[in-house]
Every structure is written in C-alpha cells, then in structure tokens.
Simulated assay, not measured.
Amino acid sequence: MEQTATGIGPLLDRFDGVSRIALLRGGGLGDLMFALPAVPALKAAYPGSTVTLLGTPVHEALVSAAHTGFDDVMVLPVAEGVRPGHEDPAAMESFFRAARERQFDLAVQLHGGGRFSNPFLLQLQARHTVGSGTPDAAPLERTLPYVYYQHEPLRSLEVAGLAGAPPVHLEARLDPRAEFVARLPETLGAALPPDGQPLLVLHPGATDPRRHWPAGSFGAVARAAADDGARVLVVGDHSETGLADAVVSAAVGRPAGGTTGRSTHSGEPPVASVAGMLGLGELAALLARADVVLANDSGPRHLAQALGTPTVGIYWAGNALTSGPLGRGRHRVHLSWVTNCPVCGADVTQVGWTAPRCPHNGSLVAGIRPGDVYADVRSLLH
C-alpha cells in the first residue's frame, strides 16, 4: 500500500468498489462530535457513497436535529464496551442480521481502543475494516495504534486516512435544521433576547462530575455578564435542572427565580434557567443563536463549537489534549493542571484502559478563577 505525507497520518490507498460505509461510534453527544470530521473525508474519498452511523439514541436524535453528513443511523444494541446496559442476545442478533443485510463495503471503528469495539465491528462482515486498536484488541484489516492522549477529532481523521481519505475539515461542522430554528422563539418566548442584546448560554454539567466547575463560579460569570447588559440562559437536560437552578441562584444572590436586581425591557430576568425545556433540535438552534457559550468539557460545548458559535471552555488539562478546540480566535480554554485526586491523592493522569480511576468525584477544575473566565467571555461578547 502506497503511503504519502498528505493527511493527519499515513494516507493509504483507497479500497475498490466502496459505496456503503458504516461508522461505529457509541457514547454521548460529545463523542459523536469527535467522529464527525471523518464523514466528509470519507464521502470525498468515495464519491456517491452513503455513510451509516452505528450510534446511540442521542446520536440518532442529533442526526434528526442537525445536518451532520450521515445518511442514516442504526441504533446500537446494548453490548459490553460499546453501549452500556443489560445485554439482550435477541436484540444483538437482530442488529447484526440487519447490518449484514446491508452488505457494507467499509466499516470504520472510531470507538476507542478496540478491545470490545473491534470484535463488534467484525461481526458486520464488511469487506474492509479500519480503526484504532490497543495491543490486546482484535486486528482489523488496517489498524492505527491506539494512544489515549491523542486529540479525538484528529484521531478520527487519522483512521479515515487508513481508508485513503484525506481531511476535508479538521473539526466537526453542523447546521441546525430550519424547523428547530423556527420553533425556538415559540419554545422560549421572551426569554430570548431582542436583536442587539448579547446572549450568553451556560452549560454547567458534564458526564464526569470531576469536570464540573462549581455552580458559584458559573454564577459569578453570569452575574458579571448580566451587569454588562447580556442576557444569560442556563441550559441542561432534565437531570441537570437542579444544577442550573444553583447557577441562577448564585448569580442573583437569592433562590432561583429572582433577578440580578435590574430587569430587561421585556421584564424577563437577565439570568434564567431553561434546563429541561429544550429538545436536542431546539438546543442546537439556541446554541447557534448564542453569541458565546460558556461550558465545561461537555457535549453542548462541543455542539456549540460545531455550530460555529464562539465558546469558552473549562477544561482539566488532560481532557484539553483529547477534546479541546484547535483554534483560539473563536474559542478560549481555561485549564486546570491538577494531576492528583483532591480527596485521596491518586494520580488522575493514568486514565482510559490503562488503569482504573479512584472512586472520588471531586472537581478537578474548581481552582479556575471566575474573573479570568469572564475576561474571555466579555472579549467574545463585545
């Protein structure tokens, strides 16, 4: 196979006769953002091909909510190391039967080190397979060595290069679907600011609680932004409504539902929670509408970046290596350099498949200062 210097890693020869491509990526919203750069690369390398996402229900919802480049989605069954839950052998067999009937020409594994995902991918019986793998993973036809501390979107492009597909975009790009943009004013009403008033959207959650910046810190930034004339909306899913209320409470200095002491022309409080009110389509429309999004390392932050909205991200340094934005013109990153658990002192840099983590969930980013964060938020808002 001929190798060239074009691409993120080695760019190998294209396969012959590829028209049906399957791409495996489980996990949450952010995980899918990491895989998206591979889609336009594969489609450009194989003109006229279709790319089917093998993903989770939240991925299926995003494909319905935004223009992602995927042609369709097959929702993964529960399977160890691929999608957590209680396995159903009948559902597993039904999934593989349907997948094999599609006769995929190429299957692309973008789900981690391959210990579980490579055997899963091989059951599709695609003509060609590419992906990453740890030393103990089942080999694919072309395999990239898996190293945990690699930027995930660039890893996806390096894997695409194994199939002869050079990069088109270095990071995910999305557009919200028009129907959700049109529905947003009806959903949020007067909570949306009028034209000309800056809109700051905050997301204080993250799957891993160690990535949570304190609610009081988010609240301090929200209060400063409101005092400078911005409307601030706090987003989250139904499980994050309490966290969002805590941010609002910290911002207004009283139980959630008050104001910062000055109302907007519409009578709406300048800091408010809309957590639990938005489906994924409306969330994408709101993030695209925002002037700036401030968030932990989380799915909504990655989604905002893909939608082209400037972001300020709160990151533990190790996560910034794997998932931080590449540029600093539109995106700012505030780093915590903590390397040990604040409770037991365990080394938190040894993560991934190499070592189990300690059981503590104390924040690794609590030391990041709100004043420093707001300086970046303000520079992007105005």
Rank of each mutant, 00 (worst) to 15 (best):
L192Y: 03
L192E: 14
L192R: 04
P193R: 09
P193D: 01
P194S: 12
G196H: 02
G196S: 05
Q197I: 14
Q197V: 15
P198T: 06
P198K: 09
L199W: 01
L199Y: 03
V201T: 13
P204I: 06
A206N: 10
A206S: 15
T207W: 06
T207K: 12
D208P: 00
D208V: 07
P209F: 02
P209C: 02
R211S: 13
R211H: 12
H212M: 12
W213A: 08
W213S: 02
P214Q: 01
A215I: 08
S217D: 12
F218V: 10
F218W: 08
G219D: 11
G219T: 07
V221P: 02
A222C: 10
A224Y: 01
A224D: 04
A225S: 03
A226V: 05
A230V: 10
A230R: 00
L233Y: 03
L233S: 06
V234L: 08
V235Q: 02
G236K: 08
G236M: 15
D237C: 07
H238C: 07
S239Y: 09
E240Y: 10
E240I: 11
L243S: 07
D245K: 11
D245C: 03
A246W: 00
A246S: 15
A246Y: 00
A246I: 13
A246F: 05
V247K: 02
V248D: 00
S249Y: 00
V252A: 15
G253F: 04
A256R: 14
A256S: 15
A256T: 11
A256D: 04
G257M: 07
G258I: 03
T260M: 08
T260G: 14
G261P: 10
G261D: 05
R262E: 14
R262K: 14
R262C: 07
S263C: 07
T264H: 01
S266N: 07
G267Y: 13
E268M: 14
E268L: 05
P269E: 10
P269S: 14
P269N: 02
P270L: 15
P270E: 15
V271T: 05
V271E: 01
A272P: 00
V274F: 06
V274H: 06
G276A: 11
M277W: 05
M277H: 11
L278H: 06
G281N: 06
E282W: 04
L283G: 10
A284L: 10
A285G: 12
L286C: 11
L286V: 06
L287H: 06
A288W: 02
R289Q: 15
A290Y: 05
D291R: 13
V292D: 13
V292F: 04
A295N: 14
A295F: 01
D297P: 02
S298D: 13
G299S: 08
G299A: 15
P300V: 01
P300Y: 03
H302W: 01
L303Q: 12
A304M: 12
Q305K: 08
Q305C: 11
A306E: 05
A306L: 13
L307S: 08
L307R: 14
L307Y: 08
G308C: 13
G308E: 12
G308I: 12
G308V: 10
G308W: 13
P310S: 11
T311K: 08
T311E: 10
V312G: 09
G313N: 05
G313K: 07
Y315M: 14
